[in-house]
C-alpha cells in the first residue's frame, strides 16, 4: 500500500456547502397550467443550505436524513455532477466541480437508481469499457476483476444481458464497474434500495470486507438503518439542508434518545399491570414480562427501585432505544441546533 499524501489532512472537506435549485411554481388545476404557460413563477428551492464536515481517509461515513434533506445533492456536489451555489468542496485536494480527469480517476459514485451498465449487453462489456476509460493496465484489471468476482460470487452472470439480471445481481455488477480502477473514494447513494433482505446483506458484507481490505473511504446514504449500523462508525445527519449531527452512532443514540427501556421478567405469579405502571410507561405487558419506557436519566434509579421493591423479579435488563426510533425522533422535532 502506498503512503498517502492525505495522512494528516482530510480526504473530503465541505465548507458551508449550499445548493439552490430554481423551480417553476404552477397553480392548481387546468387554469393554473394555462397561466403558468404564459408567465411562470420561478422560485428557489434550497436543497442544501449550509453543510460543513471533513472526512479522513479510510472512514466509512453514513449520511442520514429524511427524503429531500439534501443527501443526494451533497453527494452530487462532491462527485462533480452538480456545482455548489455557495461554499466549497475539496476532495483529494481537487475541486470536484471542475471535473478534472485526475480527480475522476480516483473516485467512483454508485447511484442505486441510475445504471452505468449497458443494459443491452452483458456486464463484462461495461467492465471492459471502464478498463479503457480509466486506462487500467491489463494485468491490474484482470487481478481486480478476479478478486471482485470472487468476493461477490457473480461468475455465472458476467455474460448475461444486464437487462435480465435481478436487482441484486445488477447492483453487484454496478459495484464491480465502480471499483475496477481501485478508487480511493466511493460515494454510494442508496446502494441497497429495492433489494430484498438477503441481497441487502450481501452488499453490506461486501462493502464491509472491501473497506477493511482496501481502506477505501466510503460515504453512503441509505434508507435502511441496518446498512448504517453495520457499516458506519460515524454518521452525519442532515435535515432540511442543514447538518444536525456529526459523530459516532453510539453517541447519537445517547444524545438523542430521550428514553431507555427496562425489560423485566417475573416469576411466581407475575405482576399486575397497575403495579408496574407505577414505575414508568408500559410499552409491552403480560403477566410475566413487561417493557417499560423511562426517561434516560432516571433509568438506573427506576431499575434499582424495581429490584428493591416487592415485585417477583426474575431478570431485569436495560435497553437502548432502537436507532430507527432515534432518527425518527430527531427528524420529528426540528428545534435541535
Amino acid at each position: 500500500m502506498k503512503e498517502s499524501v492525505f495522512k494528516n489532512m482530510p480526504i473530503i472537506q465541505a465548507k458551508n456547502l449550499g445548493k439552490s435549485y430554481p423551480f417553476y411554481k404552477k397553480e392548481k388545476g387546468f387554469g393554473g397550467a394555462v397561466k403558468s404557460f404564459f408567465a411562470r413563477k420561478t422560485e428557489l428551492a434550497h436543497a442544501v443550505k449550509d453543510i460543513s464536515f471533513s472526512i479522513e481517509e479510510g472512514e466509512v461515513v453514513g449520511f442520514l436524513g429524511p427524503n429531500g434533506a439534501g443527501k443526494t445533492t451533497t453527494l452530487k456536489m462532491l462527485s462533480g455532477i452538480t456545482t455548489p451555489s455557495k461554499g466549497e468542496a475539496r476532495v483529494l485536494g481537487f475541486e470536484p466541480g471542475k471535473r478534472e480527469y485526475a480527480y475522476q480517476r480516483q473516485f467512483s459514485i454508485v447511484m442505486g437508481q441510475k445504471n452505468q451498465l449497458f443494459q443491452d449487453l452483458p456486464p463484462i462489456e461495461t467492465f471492459a469499457f471502464n478498463k479503457d476509460i480509466y486506462g487500467i493496465p491489463e494485468k491490474e484489471y484482470q487481478e481486480t476483476l478476479a478478486e471482485l468476482i470472487e468476493i461477490l460470487g457473480v461468475e455465472e452472470i458476467l455474460y448475461r444481458q444486464a437487462r435480465k439480471l435481478s436487482l441484486g445481481q445488477r447492483m453487484k455488477c454496478e459495484l464491480i464497474a465502480a471499483l475496477l480502477h481501485r478508487p480511493k473514494i466511493l460515494f454510494l447513494d442508496e446502494p441497497t434500495i429495492g433489494l430484498d433482505v438477503v441481497a441487502q446483506k450481501n452488499i453490506r458484507d461486501f462493502l464491509k470486507k472491501y473497506n477493511q481490505e482496501h481502506k477505501t473511504t466510503i460515504m453512503l446514504t441509505s434508507h435502511y438503518m441496518e446498512d448504517i449500523r453495520e457499516l458506519c462508525e460515524r454518521v452525519i445527519v442532515i435535515s432540511e439542508g442543514r447538518l444536525i449531527y456529526d459523530g459516532g452512532i453510539d453517541k447519537l443514540i445517547a444524545d438523542y434518545a430521550p428514553y431507555k427501556f427496562i425489560k423485566v421478567t417475573f416469576n411466581q405469579d407475575g405482576a399486575k399491570k397497575e403495579t408496574v405502571a407505577l414505575y414508568g410507561e408500559v410499552v409491552e405487558y403480560n403477566q410475566y414480562r413487561v417493557v417499560l419506557q423511562v426517561p434516560r436519566k432516571k433509568a438506573r434509579q427506576v431499575a434499582a427501585d424495581i429490584l428493591n421493591g416487592e415485585l417477583p423479579v426474575d431478570d431485569i435488563f436495560l435497553d437502548e432505544e432502537d436507532i430507527d426510533a432515534v432518527i425518527r425522533e430527531i427528524f420529528n422535532k426540528n428545534e435541535i441546533i
Binding site: 471535473r99 475522476q104 473516485f107 459514485i109 441510475k114 445504471n115 471502464n130 476509460i133 480509466y134
Partner: peptide, 13 residues
C-alpha cells in the same frame, strides 16, 4: 432526461 449523463460526467471521458 434519465440522468444517465451523470454516470458519464463523473468519468474521465
Amino acid at each position: 432526461k434519465d440522468g444517465i449523463l451523470s454516470t458519464l460526467l463523473v468519468k474521465p471521458i
